[in-house]
Amino acid sequence: MPPDTRTTALLLLTILLLLLSSHTPSTADLPQFREAPAFRNGQRCPISTWPSNPHDPSTIHVAMTLDYSTPYLRGSIAAVFSVLQHSTCPENTFFHFLTTTRHRHFQNLNSTITSTFPYLRFHLYHFSPALVNHLISSSIRTALDQPLNYARIYLADLLPSTVNRIIYLDSDLIIVDDISKLWKINLSAHILGAPEYCHANFTNYFTPKFWSNRYFSSTFNNRATCYFNTGVMVMDLTKWRTNGCTRKLEHWMRIQKKYRIYELGSLPPFLLVFAGNVEGVEHRWNQHGLGGDNLEGLCRDLHPGPVSLLHWSGKGKPWLRLDSKKPCPLDSLWAPYDLFKHRPLISDS
């Protein structure tokens, strides 16, 4: 007897689904970037010997996240390009990239970085979402809930113990100054250095439940509660490890999971642990908020004063606004660092 038509259709559908689930994207499916120019050290630059010399003082360590499945990779590439272009000693900068990508995608990401920056000194680290998935609470924007937003909490655990100091940079920024100036700031006895904003209203960063609970709100007693943006930080990883900062941040994330004491993703735990105990850095090193607020992402102007770093924190990202032909005026400052290859509208073949 001929096989039942319905059974045959189900069998063919099952085979099709198996083929689709096992499909690995080809090179053509992956984001493509133009090759950046080769940036070389100036004549007066010392020669970096890290990691063969783990305590080499001439090496600048920079940490960033790379999200291969979202347009944020485009922002990361632009940020790296900007760092290299404005460095006096670009070959002395070592990049530590954190990603949730695994297996073949990990290799593809490595190839993307290598082909875009053939002379870049870098290492890829796998950050396991399992470290934080059980600690993450929903926030006002889905993008803020991604595990990679919390990877900065684990830098001291993931990076080699010989890395004692790191500059952490978000993916939605560009640097227009020599990063060595930021690297050399004196942290004094502090664990973190970042631009502070002491006139910010802390009431906005936590829920009424937080302020009505004496145990929670008392954490700010006898502290100068100055806001700082976690997208640009100089971190003393030795002091971080000694003081158990990762565990302190996780503690507040567990409280958030149970009591809902804030709405803004990974920022509030940093404020709870570090606010009032941060080495203040010149505001020029984080002209933040250029992406507007977290809900509408409207255009914003620069803060008064000099600029060394432009940061599109907030909902509006420059690459999305440029592609939609609805850019904000300041997005034109990001565009020259964009190495993304747009696919042609009409085939050349």
Score class of each variant (00 low, 15 high):
residue 3 P to H: 08
residue 5 T to V: 14
residue 10 L to C: 13
residue 13 L to H: 08
residue 18 L to T: 11
residue 19 L to D: 04
residue 20 L to P: 00
residue 24 T to C: 15
residue 27 T to Q: 14
residue 42 G to A: 13
residue 61 H to F: 13
residue 67 D to T: 11
residue 70 T to K: 07
residue 78 A to M: 08
residue 80 V to D: 02
residue 90 P to V: 04
residue 90 P to N: 06
residue 91 E to V: 03
residue 99 T to M: 09
residue 107 Q to S: 15
residue 110 N to L: 09
residue 112 T to K: 08
residue 126 H to T: 08
residue 135 L to W: 11
residue 141 R to D: 10
residue 142 T to H: 14
residue 142 T to W: 13
residue 146 Q to W: 04
residue 156 A to N: 08
residue 158 L to C: 09
residue 159 L to A: 13
residue 164 N to M: 14
residue 166 I to E: 06
residue 168 Y to I: 07
residue 173 L to T: 04
residue 177 D to L: 00
residue 177 D to P: 03
residue 182 L to D: 01
residue 182 L to H: 00
residue 189 A to C: 03
residue 189 A to K: 12
residue 194 A to H: 04
residue 196 E to D: 01
residue 207 T to S: 14
residue 211 W to F: 14
residue 215 Y to A: 15
residue 233 M to N: 01
residue 236 D to M: 02
residue 242 T to G: 08
residue 243 N to H: 15
residue 262 Y to C: 02
residue 268 P to A: 03
residue 270 F to K: 01
residue 272 L to C: 06
residue 275 A to T: 09
residue 289 G to I: 02
residue 290 L to N: 00
residue 292 G to F: 01
residue 297 G to F: 05
residue 301 D to C: 04
residue 305 G to C: 10
residue 309 L to V: 11
residue 313 S to A: 01
residue 324 S to M: 02
residue 337 Y to C: 03
residue 337 Y to W: 10
residue 337 Y to L: 10
residue 338 D to F: 11
residue 343 R to M: 10
residue 344 P to T: 10
